[in-house]
Amino acid sequence: MLDLVDEPSSWIPTPRSLTPTDNVLATVNIWKSDAIKFAELPISAEWWRNIILVERSVPLTPAEQSLYTRIANEKSAILGAKNVYRIIIDESSVPLTGATVDDRIRTIERMRHVTKQALANFGFVLVVNPTQQFALSLRDSDSRIKLVAVVTDDLHYGGNHQTLSYANSIITAHHDVDEILMKTGRRFKTANSAEGIYRAIEAEITDLYPKEFNVLLPAYNCWERLPEFDTVDTSITDVVLWLNCGSSETPTVKTTFAEFATDLASVTARIALSEEYFNRYRNLAANLETVNGRSWFIRTVFADGARVKVLYE
């Protein structure tokens, strides 16, 4: 078992030696502007099991390095060499010709068309101690990809907030958890050891797999069996909102989308989710009793491209 430890003053991070068997898709300097192209590797047809590990070439902390090593050597059906493909990130600066701002749109534009097509072969992006938005760029490039972000307890700050706020799941060993992320994160899990973090990653990925029998589940104020539960087709619907107003009174966007979400939340009487989306938004689904909780949920599912069906009571 690996132990998380405080970073010793004498610890000097060094690049890990990689071989072709490490399933390296690409090595990318985030500050350059050259095209990003994936190596041609045999990839499993079960796309939902395939994981891109965004791996820093020089780990920030001992726990991060240990996790990379564990993933490389573990014979796991979920998080093993068969399913994990690496993108090695070089964060060294590029004088004069390099970019100076961490811009995920610029990163997406660097990806060749064939690279974006290749992302359809993956169900997850896994990033450890994110300090930049590269992993988020991959998530934004394919609607099926889910981003799992890990923060080890020997990282002495919270990591890139933009990446964490958009992650599908946050796994952390920190005890002083960011209160905003606790309320707005899609899924949130804490672990107290390196073993706990590794097992939490496996559990989160498994729970976020697509569901074969994607039934509709009650999320807010609809615990009794409603007729719609038997008629809504979850192959084309992810979220169902019941509004306690007439169709002509449905809120519309007047100023900002955030204000629209709050107006819509105030007239939302019931919410149901497909099982897959209930799992995806487990943390948000636990906070639907308040208007603020429903408002943030609505903002998030719309931003993520959920297919929403509106019914009127």
Rank of each mutant, 00 (worst) to 15 (best):
E91L: 04
V215I: 13
A194P: 00
Y312K: 07
V24H: 03
I43C: 11
M182G: 04
D304K: 01
R104P: 08
K75D: 15
F257S: 01
Q65M: 12
S137R: 00
T234Y: 08
R49C: 06
P251A: 02
G80Q: 09
W31A: 00
P218L: 07
P13N: 05
A219S: 12
L126K: 03
E109M: 11
V310M: 09
T300I: 06
Q117N: 12
Q133E: 12
E74G: 02
G158T: 05
F134E: 06
W47C: 12
A173R: 01
E313P: 14
L181P: 01
V253T: 05
L147Q: 07
E40Q: 13
L119H: 07
E289F: 03
V177G: 00
I170V: 10
V5Q: 09
A272E: 10
R56A: 10
P8Q: 07
S57N: 08
D304T: 02
E202P: 10
H174R: 08
W48Q: 15
I298S: 01
W242M: 15
L181Q: 08
T255F: 02
L226H: 07
S193R: 04
S165K: 05
L4Q: 12
T21N: 11
P251E: 04
R280Y: 09
P227Y: 01
R110A: 12
E40N: 11
W47V: 14
S92W: 02
T300D: 07
F134W: 11
L136R: 04
Y85R: 12
G246Q: 09
V127P: 01
L226I: 07
L136K: 04
M1T: 15
E109P: 00
A173V: 08
A194N: 00
K37V: 13
F38E: 05
P210S: 09
L138K: 03
T69M: 10
P8S: 06
T256R: 02
K254G: 08
T268H: 05
I145Y: 10
V58E: 12
T252F: 02
L284E: 07
T115Q: 05
Y312A: 08
I51S: 03
D207A: 10
